[in-house]
Computed example of a mutant assay.
Amino acid sequence: MKVLIVGCGITGSALGILLARAGAEVDIVELEPKWSTLGSGITLQGNALRVLRELGVWEQVAAAGYAFDSLGIRAPDGTLLFEGQDHRTGGHDLPATLGMDRPDLQAVLLAELRRAGARISLGRTVQALEDTGAGVDAVFDDGTADFYDLVASADGIRSRVRTMLGIADTPQPAGMGIWRVHARRPGSVTRTDLAYGGPCHIAGYCPTGADTLYAYLVEDARPFEDVRAEDKAAVMRELAAPYGGAWKEIAEDITDPDRINYTWFESLLVARPWYRANTVLLGDAAHACPPTVAQGAAMCLEDAWVLSQLLIERGGAGPDVLEAFMERRFERVRTVVDSSLQITRWQLEGARDADVPGLMGHVAALVTELP
């Protein structure tokens, strides 16, 4: 089996590792010309860690990140209102949650991808795809061409391949924006704590290593033209100022605008099916959601694991394989996307009777089951 993967982020890397290890001939093209050392932190729940263990990189991920099993809810002044054990959705032998820097995760996956024997081309992507019935003729932006049994599009929320396939679904803003910053970890921070209320909808943080964390502040979306690089640190410190507890130390470290990024919450759920003939969308190219249930990366990793499992078990691609992929993925992903958006709507509306713990518990129970 010869497979082209478009995009070498979390989804594409995971799929490439699993297929190349099984003996497939794997080419990966990535539009970015070099590996970025930038990027926010990432929260990986147990079902994401379960896939990373299947990839053979759990030990490296555990060493690079920070694992924990509880969640805290705080008042804006820092008073602890609730703490509880989080669900171990990956099984009893994996932690409930692990935080790490996204570039560190990418580095771990890239090293394993190379060990597995996949061919990676940076600064290169597809220009055109033509399905022949037996497979796909791919034309690249450097003028070269090749034939593949399957093309897997993992090129992100603004997927070019999705457009090439004539799929009209596009990401939609959810009404919120999020400020994220890399900062030093105060000794008191040993898990994710979330504060609701104050000037922001959510003020939270997640430890990512022995002395690091990423912190985030969620507000109503502001126009991107109002977010100037030179003002980022001052704006984020101003938003953080009313929050107590560990936020006092975190705010002192919000000084470098290059460690801050601001993005909108967006959502996407491509209607069934996510494939056209022998080209399939997966990961953020097919679905994305606000990070309110922290399942975005997990859904991407699960996509890669399920698709690779089906391709390997059935000895190749074909409409039966891709339809089986849809059967195992669509409803599970839809529940996660819908739940993420529901929490976002409750926060925007200031709903006082919102059952956020109940909804998050429902999602946790769902994703504890194997996909």
Rank of each mutant, 00 (worst) to 15 (best):
W346T: 14
A233Y: 02
I5Y: 06
L80V: 02
R74N: 09
D101K: 12
D226V: 06
L71W: 15
E349H: 06
V108Y: 00
A203R: 10
H87F: 15
V235N: 03
A210H: 12
P371Q: 11
L44E: 02
D27L: 14
A285C: 07
P273N: 06
V136I: 13
T79H: 15
D258Y: 08
G39H: 07
S70Q: 14
R74A: 08
E238Y: 01
E313I: 03
G175A: 04
N261T: 11
L282S: 03
L301G: 04
L80Q: 10
G361D: 13
A63K: 14
S308W: 01
A138Y: 09
A48E: 01
R222C: 12
T11S: 14
A96Q: 08
V356W: 02
L105K: 05
R276E: 02
L49A: 13
A20Q: 04
A134I: 03
G350M: 03
R102N: 10
D258E: 15
G209K: 03
Q127Y: 10
P291C: 12
I28E: 07
V270M: 01
D211Y: 01
I157P: 00
G12C: 04
R334M: 08
A229I: 11
D220M: 02
D137K: 12
D77Q: 11
A64H: 01
R119N: 11
S159T: 00
Q85V: 13
L282T: 01
D220K: 15
A116E: 07
G72Y: 06
E59T: 14
L105A: 07
Q309E: 15
G175W: 00
D142G: 13
G283L: 05
V61K: 00
L105C: 06
A174K: 03
G175F: 00
E252A: 14
G318T: 03
L281A: 05
L38D: 14
K248H: 15
V321M: 06
A351D: 15
G39Q: 08
M326I: 05
L311F: 00
G197P: 09
R160F: 08
G296H: 05
A152G: 05
E302P: 11
E323P: 00
P207Q: 08
A128P: 12
S13H: 03
G315L: 06
G133Y: 14
G7S: 07
L311I: 07
I202Y: 10
R276F: 01
R185W: 11
M100S: 09
L194S: 05
Q309T: 14
V161Q: 02
R228W: 09
V57M: 10
K232Q: 15
V280L: 10
D231Y: 07
E59Q: 15
I202A: 05
G135E: 07
Y262Q: 05
A251S: 15
V321G: 03
P186L: 08
E238H: 10
E238I: 08
Q106E: 12
P290H: 04
L322C: 08
P186A: 12
R222H: 11
A215Y: 02
A286D: 01
A351M: 05
W274S: 02
R115Y: 07
V280Y: 01
D77T: 01
N47I: 00
V336Q: 04
